[in-house]
């Protein structure tokens, strides 16, 4: 199981705990990740609003041109990166006019992409390549009794709807949670939008959406939320204090990357749990498992 790895910009900044946990967890599962050399920003869901879909997709395609010589599937963990990269790749493979024009643009830097790669979302790789059985077999510290809400987020499942799991009510993350020995709690808002990048321009949207998501998780009895999305993790984790101030709520719901939970269950070295980066402390929820600060 070898992959070209596209970390994405968040992993160099706000999503540090994702990066610190995803690599050791992948290694523990027998995956080899090779970072795409000198990768560039995929444009997320933003660049096309300034320069249009075509230019954004050409920018994203530079990464494929750099990765193609190795011939490995491109593993993407960030949902926004997955959205941009997977759709670009699909267009490369299905739209001959786009393929030709985009290669003319790449040729300005002496690059070319033949459209031979596959772009893979990390949850999909976890179930299809690694397999739930293998994840379960790797667990050394079963998370028995821990109640976890699996927040898949919006873009992960809906980028290529019906290519794996359900775009509105997916179960893939719940399966992973259960494989770790924890209990996946009922969570109707598991693919509701968190407010995304409205943080700066319209934080009310963010707080309204995040409030509903946190309440939904709490109603289901969850002690923590896990997610594969950097934007979701940041919004839900960093805004609870502000929401408690402004909305008179009393949220104290830890929000972890699902790979952090895997690192704990695999009993990997605590650096790979990367819990010091979590703003809402997860230690109360983890105490019954013998994990303390």
């Amino acid at each position: 199981m070898r992959y070209s790895f596209y970390p994405g910009c968040s992993m160099e900044g706000t999503a540090v705990p994702y990066r610190k946990s995803v690599e050791p967890v992948a290694e523990a599962l027998g995956m080899e990740l090779e970072e795409i050399p000198d990768w560039n920003c995929c444009g997320a869901t933003v660049a096309s609003g300034v320069v249009g879909d075509y230019t954004q997709q050409v920018v994203a395609a530079r990464n494929f041109a750099l990765a193609e010589p190795r011939g490995l599937d491109v593993l993407v963990a960030c949902s926004s990166c997955f959205l941009s990269l997977a759709l670009t790749n699909k267009r490369f493979q299905e739209d001959a006019d786009f393929h030709r024009a985009a290669n003319e643009a790449l040729a300005a830097a002496g690059l070319k992409y033949n459209g031979t790669l596959k772009v893979r979302q990390i949850l999909e790789v976890m179930v299809n390549d690694v397999g739930i059985e293998r994840i379960r077999a790797r667990v050394k510290r079963p998370l028995t009794g821990l109640k976890v809400a699996g927040y898949v987020g919006c873009q992960t499942m809906r980028t290529l709807p019906w290519e794996f799991d359900d775009p509105e009510h997916p179960v893939v993350l719940d399966r992973i949670i259960e494989a770790l020995g924890a209990t996946a709690t009922p969570f109707p808002m598991k693919t509701r939008c968190c407010g995304s990048s409205q943080t700066l321009p319209a934080e009310k949207i963010l707080m309204g959406a995040s409030r509903e998501i946190l309440e939904s998780a709490a109603e289901g009895g969850a002690q923590m939320i896990v997610t594969p999305c950097p934007m979701c993790q940041l919004n839900l984790d960093s805004y609870q204090g502000r929401m408690n101030q402004l909305l008179q709520t009393s949220f104290a719901m830890p929000v972890l990357f699902f790979t952090q939970l895997m690192a704990i269950a695999f009993d990997l070295p605590p650096e790979s749990w990367a819990l010091k980066y979590n703003i809402v402390s997860p230690f109360q929820a983890l105490a019954p498992l013998g994990i303390n600060r």
């Binding site: 560039n40 075509y54 230019t55 920018v59 024009a101 300005a108 830097a109």
Partner: peptide
């Protein structure tokens, strides 16, 4: 990124094509 100049060339070409 090391290839920033290359990226600029790609972007400019794409925008002119558009």
């Amino acid at each position: 990124i090391k290839g920033l100049g290359d990226l600029h060339k790609i972007i400019e070409k794409a925008r002119s094509q558009r």
